[in-house]
Computed example of a mutant assay.
Amino acid sequence: MKKEALFYTKDENGKILCKLCPQNCHIKEGGIGFCGARKVEDGILYTLNYGNISSASLDPIEKKPLYHYKPGSFILSVGSFGCNFRCGFCQNHTISQTKPQTQFLQSEELINFALKQEDNIGLAFTYNEPSIWYEYIRDVCEKSQNEDLDLVLVSNGYISEEPIQSILPFINAANIDLKAFNNKFYKDICCGDIKIVMNNIEKMHDKLHLEITTLLVEGYNDSDDEIKNLCKWISSLNPNIPLHLSRYFPSYKFDAPATSLNTMENSSNIAREYLNYVYVGNVPNITNNTHCPKCNEIVIDRSNFSTKVILKEETCPKCGYKINVVI
């Protein structure tokens, strides 16, 4: 379905200026934006991925990853195609950097499908970058306000001011990929700007449930100083924001060796000096239990491939400390 895009103007040369994300693409007639999902036809900017679903799965909420938002629950995860980054290590490059086969669903159809899923708490927009699926997600958000559905974004956080302010009131939780804590990485590897992502995280952290993921690529973004500065900055916003340090494996255009287990352990130890909740992903035999920051009691047990919520009313059962979690 072809649908006119939001957030664009024409420049002095008659080219379309897309203002959805900070790439700020100037697109000529017949051209397609950097994201691969917006095209100019007859002087109008259209979204190419409206309602086009490439992937859908009922996932544990922990796979997003969200460890502190309704732990142990399931959420219908959906994605489309396209991305406004060019990360060479992308694990979902077959949908983020190409146009895969898709199935079209009207926003109402997706909502009804989500409501029919047993034990489903809502919809997570994920797999490819959801911000460039904006028009469809906005329609789903608006039309599902009277339904019992939680709405989640798993995003790179690279979106412009007006769009993010417009969508935030609808979103219950988000996991933002903070790719690194140096702008050279963002510029050279992702084709982005870290300051914009940081600004958007600042906008989000007190308006919804927020968790952050950083994929550690050895030799690129894993130095002790970088991990320390990243965690100091997150802590300055709120030391209770959960951080997921994820282990890199070769993918797409990156053939560097997988990040060592020693690096993952060292980085997580540094992170725990500044943050109360640090988790390690893509590492075998890691339980990632949630401990009370005050008394170290296990309050969420994630051993044996299951999630057991021990705390009640979001407080530690042993000492009563308030845990940053939505039950």
Rank of each mutant, 00 (worst) to 15 (best):
K318W: 11
L210H: 04
N128Q: 07
F254W: 10
I111H: 03
S80T: 15
I212L: 13
T126P: 03
N282S: 11
M264H: 14
W133Y: 12
L110G: 08
L210D: 00
I327D: 05
V283G: 09
K10P: 06
Y158N: 00
F305N: 13
Y252D: 04
Y50H: 13
V325P: 03
P130N: 05
R302K: 12
P317E: 00
N262M: 06
Y69T: 01
E4H: 11
V217L: 08
K3H: 09
C87S: 05
Y220I: 09
I137C: 06
I310L: 10
G281W: 09
I189E: 02
E226A: 03
K318D: 01
G72V: 09
N296R: 11
V152P: 03
D59P: 09
D150Y: 07
I16Q: 15
N172W: 05
E226G: 02
S131F: 14
V40E: 07
S96D: 08
N175I: 13
I300S: 06
N92K: 05
H205T: 05
I300V: 11
D225K: 10
V140T: 02
F85H: 14
P22W: 11
C87P: 04
V78T: 07
N120F: 00
S96L: 11
E265R: 14
Y8C: 14
L245G: 01
Y134T: 07
K15A: 12
S80F: 07
N200G: 06
G79V: 10
I286T: 04
P257D: 11
A5P: 08
G31I: 12
A114K: 00
M204I: 11
Y252R: 04
G192F: 08
Q101T: 14
K207P: 06
S77K: 02
M198L: 15
N183R: 02
V40C: 03
D148I: 15
M1P: 06
L237V: 10
C191F: 13
L151T: 01
K15P: 02
I53A: 04
S96Q: 10
A258V: 04
C191R: 14
F185R: 01
D193P: 03
M204H: 03
G51V: 02
V197R: 05
N52Q: 14
L230S: 00
E135L: 12
K3A: 12
R138Q: 12
I189D: 06
T94Y: 02
L151R: 08
P242S: 15
Q103V: 15
E211P: 01
V197E: 01
N172V: 05
C18N: 01
Y136T: 01
C191M: 15
H93I: 08
N289E: 07
Q97N: 13
K318L: 13
D177H: 13
I159T: 10
L76S: 06
P100C: 04
D148R: 09
E118S: 12
G82K: 13
C295D: 03
K253R: 08
D148G: 04
G30F: 03
S235H: 06
E62R: 07
K19C: 13
K10F: 11
C292A: 09
R138L: 15
Q145S: 08
H209V: 09
Y274Q: 06
S267Y: 02
M264N: 14
L208H: 08
N240C: 14
G82I: 14
C292N: 01
H244Y: 03
I286N: 00
